[in-house]
């Protein structure tokens, strides 16, 4: 019985981790190309959760269906944000970018607080308590769907970067912005597209997250930290690394809440972060420094 429970928790962690990984993937893509650390990432994720909540409550849209329009909306937000504000900070030092995005994060959190209040919102799904049985092991249907959604979006993004002209151009831009500009690529537009894609991941992840967690404004900074931890563990700038990091963190936290205490789970991920930073400063799948 304990074994079954352990397996159950591990699978839960794995599935959650894939969704976290998708959120972190957005952060990783933005950093990998635009070289800006989006300190408002968790805020955007929670904003997407609220958007999905409102779509479900007022438009009766299932979050798994609302995912596409929300991702599109967040793509536009990201595109505009990069074009109008962040672009001016591209060449500025880290701490200035940090202040800009922290300011934005504060604004987002408090707008959410103003509009929706501090209480957690819950989306009712008719299939919320459905589950699959693998022998004695029970797996939530929503989690399976959410993880599947995360993998689908991530796969689409991989395909985009691998096979589309624009995707290849963005990768060229990430490797060498000056060179990209020299061969006639519109670097500013590619950056805006990338920021848009990063937030689209974040938006999609938010729509999926709302099926496994209830949004509150206070969740936002925790998500920002979570995304960072995942991306660093996986390797900043590595796309598969973000998903891998998500799974590692998801499983580690699930195990921690089982073995230690649920409130201690993020301590485990930070502990893991320190260990990874020491053993592999560029993350599990990051490129080496030199």
């Amino acid at each position: 019985m304990t074994l079954a429970l352990t397996i159950e928790v591990l699978i839960q962690g794995l599935l959650n981790g894939l969704v976290y990984g998708l959120m972190a993937l957005g952060l990783s893509v933005i950093f990998g190309v635009v070289r800006v650390v989006n300190f408002a990432h968790g805020e955007f994720a929670v904003l997407a959760m609220y958007t999905a909540f409102m779509a479900a409550t007022y438009l009766h849209l299932d979050p798994f269906i609302a995912l596409a329009p929300i991702a599109a909306l967040f793509f536009v937000i990201g595109y505009v944000l990069q074009k109008t504000i962040v672009a001016k900070f591209i060449d500025r030092p880290d701490h200035q970018q940090f202040i800009l995005l922290i300011g934005l994060a504060i604004v987002i959190v408090n707008v959410m607080l103003l509009v929706s209040g501090p209480d957690a919102r819950h989306v009712n799904l008719s299939y919320a308590y459905d589950a699959y049985f693998l022998g004695p092991v029970l797996v939530d249907k929503t989690r399976v769907l959410a993880a599947g959604g995360a993998l689908t979006v991530a796969a689409a993004l991989f395909a985009f970067f691998r096979f589309s002209m624009t995707g290849v151009a963005i990768r060229a831009c990430a490797d060498n912005p000056t060179g990209a500009a020299v061969v006639g690529l519109d670097v500013r537009r590619l950056y805006a597209l990338t920021f848009g894609l990063g937030l689209a991941c974040c938006g999609a992840a938010g729509a999926l997250l709302v099926t496994i967690a209830d949004p509150t404004p206070t969740l936002a900074p925790a998500f920002t930290l979570l995304a960072f931890t995942i991306v660093i563990i996986g390797g900043l700038g590595s796309m598969p690394g973000a998903l891998l990091g998500g799974v590692v963190i998801g499983v580690a936290e699930a195990l921690a809440s089982l073995v230690v205490a649920p409130s201690m789970k993020s301590m485990v991920s930070f502990g893991l972060l320190v260990v990874i930073l020491v053993l592999r400063p560029r993350g599990l799948m990051g490129r080496s420094a030199s």
Binding site: I85, I99, G103, I106, V107, N110, L113, L114, G117
Partner: peptide
């Protein structure tokens, strides 16, 4: 309302 002050604070920082 809660948050209004912080919104201006955040904008001020930016």
């Amino acid at each position: 309302a809660p948050g209004v002050k912080a919104i201006f604070y955040g904008l001020g920082l930016m």
